[in-house]
Design a protein around this nucleic acid. Structure first.
Lengths: 118, 118
DNA sequence: TCCATATTTCTACAATCCTTGAAATGTTGA
DNA sequence: TCAACATTTCAAGGATTGTAGAAATATGGA
């Protein structure tokens, strides 16, 4: 991930409403949510949610696609993963002191491929 | 990590000079760097570097300590690690699609305790 | 075609952030 | 005590960002 994109991503996540939106969309999964639903759940006006959604998309953290009258937004897993990786290897230079705690999280949320059944 | 601190951390990292400073301090390791050295290496004025260092400290990403006339800044490994963890578990809800790539990085930069010799 | 729905774009304004240079603070050694 | 050094604080200005509401765009159905 290039630095410019990382800077945009950090800026995108540094705003409360936008951080909430990302969380909501991650939880919503591949089905995503329509802009209106996001606005309602986040408690902001349609025009305001549109402003923030655009910012998040510009940063590569969410995706959009039209579905009839609605526009459906989904979390961009690739973008979010790339940002975490940037933070670990580019920014923190892979320092074990920093990355070790993250490794624990990774270990418990990402079961190894062959035993991902339970 | 509470949300407010995460927001501050993201804001802190969303500025080019500050991102560079964090990188420099991570690389510098436990010895850290004096404010003046940071300013010179980052190519900004003393007062400007002071402004950014304060912001980074407020966010909990760096530490400071006076050493004679100089003030030595060091990366705050705990703070940086906590931010990565926040991004993985709180923000991204531990989604394997997002965290798996991070797990690879973690695996290669954090050797298991009993074989950290080579 | 016309209307209702869903969303975005535009405009204006307030708030925050970044930069700059000057002045202030704290530290050391003569 | 005084001068030099390292850094921070302050004040001012310009730039960027966030918010609100009105107007515009796109879609689908009567």
């Amino acid at each position: 991930m290039e630095e410019g994109r990382a800077l945009m991503s950090f800026a995108a996540l540094s705003q409360e409403t936008r951080l909430h939106i990302v969380r909501m969309l991650v939880v919503a999964g591949p089905d995503g949510m329509a802009a209106g639903a996001v606005a309602e759940k986040a408690g902001v006006s349609p025009s305001n949610v549109s402003f923030h959604l655009k910012e998040l998309e510009r940063a590569g953290l969410i995706n959009q696609q039209r579905e009839s009258r609605s526009i459906i937004y989904t979390a961009n897993y690739e973008g979010l993963g790339a940002l975490i990786r940037f933070l670990m290897e580019d920014c923190c230079a892979g320092h074990p002191e920093i990355c070790a705690p993250a490794a624990e999280v990774a270990a418990c949320c990402a079961p190894s491929p062959e035993e991902s059944l339970q």
